[in-house]
């Protein structure tokens, strides 16, 4: 647990490289996320967005420095919302059991820990009263909301979202927006990987375009111009090709 309000950390990626096998996933990625910001990372499929998150979570053999600057004396709470969860729909597991597995120290077979407030977290994502539902029987949107709920227990200082809106329905999107507003008000730093550029433009305070390298970084209103976005999603970014005409382009094409 950590002290609440305004405890969101700053994140610094300093020349982060990630190579898996012989494939370069990230090349000299330097990014800085301000404390309390809603920082969106956009980019094409295979651009290294999820790998950047895995590196931040300490699950990738990256090179370079990734640093979290916590305002307090010690590290706070980091929450992570995955894109989807690998899950056997036949498992006799209720929503509360699922949250218990993820959130509490007490073994889940001893039952959910009432002190952690699973009901409240489920209410915040619009799933009030569905704690006893079988997790496998939920719809995709509902399951995504449960994944959001698990990130709220305990209250996070840094929340890492990997395309959370993919499976959300319209009601879910509204809930997600209010959730984002609540977290921002509480001073939580939000790192948000998203492909829905309209939502990013509306909700993010800063956006970075990532396609193996950082192609742009700035306020969404300035950065998400049609030209920039075309650049980002084209196979060989035009601007980069011009800037690095001296470099052999074949290397990028090959992978």
């Amino acid at each position: 647990m950590s002290a609440r309000s305004g405890n969101g950390p700053g994140i610094l990626f300093d020349r982060v490289d990630l190579t898996l096998g012989r494939t370069a996933i990230l090349e000299r990625v330097s990014l800085s996320v301000a404390p309390g910001a809603v920082h969106a990372v956009v980019g094409p499929n295979g651009g290294g967005k999820s790998s950047l998150i895995r590196a931040l979570l300490g699950q990738a053999p990256h090179r370079g420095t990734i640093r979290l600057d916590w305002p307090g004396d010690g590290p706070g709470t980091v929450a992570y919302v995955p894109q989807a969860v690998e899950f056997d729909r036949g498992l006799p597991l209720t929503v509360e059991d699922f949250l218990a597995v993820l959130c509490q120290r007490r073994p889940a077979f001893l039952g959910p820990d009432r002190r952690l407030g699973y009901g409240e977290a489920l209410a915040r994502v619009g799933m009030a009263g569905k704690g006893r539902r079988r997790f496998g029987a939920l719809s995709g949107g509902e399951r995504q909301r449960v994944l959001l709920a698990q990130a709220l227990i305990p209250a996070p200082d840094l929340i890492i979202l990997d395309e959370p809106m993919t499976a959300l329905d319209e009601a879910g999107v509204a809930i997600f927006e209010s959730l984002l507003a609540g977290l921002t008000a509480a001073g939580t730093t939000i790192l948000w990987v998203e492909h829905d550029l309209a939502q990013v433009r509306r909700l993010a305070t800063r956006v970075s375009g990532l396609n193996r390298r950082v192609l742009f970084d700035g306020p969404p209103a300035d950065m998400l111009s049609p030209e920039q976005v075309l650049d980002l999603f084209s196979a060989v970014p035009r601007r980069k090709a011009e800037a690095e005409a001296s470099r052999p382009a074949a290397r990028r094409m090959a992978s």
């Binding site: 950390p9 590196a55 931040l56 979570l57 300490g58 699950q59 990738a60 053999p61 990256h62 090179r63 420095t65 990734i66 640093r67 979290l68 600057d69 916590w70 305002p71 307090g72 004396d73 010690g74 590290p75």
Partner: peptide
Amino acid sequence: MHQQIVRRAGA
């Protein structure tokens, strides 16, 4: 201010 360096995954 507490600086936390994320360690690379590995054995």
